[in-house]
Amino acid sequence: MSIHAEIQATVGGFAIRAAFDAPAGTCTAVVGPNGAGKTTLIHALAGLVALERGKIVLAGQVVDDPARRRRVPPERRPIALHSQHNLLFPHLSVADNVAFGPRCSGLAARAARRRAEEWLEKVGLAEAAGLRPAQLSGGQAQRAGLARAAACQPEVLLLDESLAALDAETRTDVRHLLADLSATRVLITHDPVEARLLADQLLVMETGEIVQAGAPEEVAANPRTPWTAGLLGVNLLSGRAAGTEVALDCGLALTTATPMTGPVLVAFSPAAVTLSTAEPHTSARNTWEAEVGRVQPEGDRVKVFLGPPAPCRVWVTPQAVGELGLEAGSRCWASLKATELTVRQA
């Protein structure tokens, strides 16, 4: 079921303006800083927030069109919503929570119960069927909430940070589960890996507007704001280009492989930078001495924040940290091949 949305809505004095299309069966990931209006966007699709202007069309059926005074209430839209707060019904067992949607759609009690058990099985909560929501851990409650929304077998599934409370292993399982669903999915996430793995389309929201939209790889390669670059792990520096020379705003000059003129954005992966203790003599066109800021382990690698002249993030191995004596306040040399730089007109 395809989605066509032109949304203008205000909640608590905060206005959002967002328009996007999603073909049937695709997954759209919405990313953005806290308070960007992502939840409001999803609530507008669900019908929990009224549009001031605009239009929402689900598979050709207009469900919201204030200009024509048309507004289909949430329970009659072909949607199901999983909120980040889960909102499990405290007086019902986990199984009855999951069976709630199927019951509302007219399924008989026994069939609804069977569907609930299937979904609890899929999210690995089969044994929790008889428990009350208050007895679940955070991750279990999130899986139960997800199962409750999915058990409605909606044509559009709206997911508000549905994987945030899961541990790494469960998260992978649930991500595969989400990827296999046939519903058109709209998913809010803070996890760049999740966004890149699940989404056919990425929407970046900041201060109530969609600032960038496109395929995840496309957005990662061509991030338009520092926030997007940070989210996708890419370093992004602005400057002014003259040929293959870029004078960065921060003072450093970089050599690139792509001639350009005027204001540009230079992007490079944190993995593209090599660190050394002495001034390196390599084929890399760009070398500079920098002060080490924070040194932060991330899984099996370490993220090193470099200070002036070019603030950026660098990934190194834990061994390298020891060998180079990297710690906050120490100095090191950075080298970066010109071919690793992506330059875009700003």
Binding site: E75, F100, G101, A149
Partner: peptide, 15 residues
């Protein structure tokens, strides 16, 4: 929000 959640799962006012 519990009542809103029920609505998004397909429950009408009476339900």
């Amino acid at each position: 929000r519990l009542e809103s959640a029920a609505a998004t799962l397909g429950a009408g006012r009476w339900t």
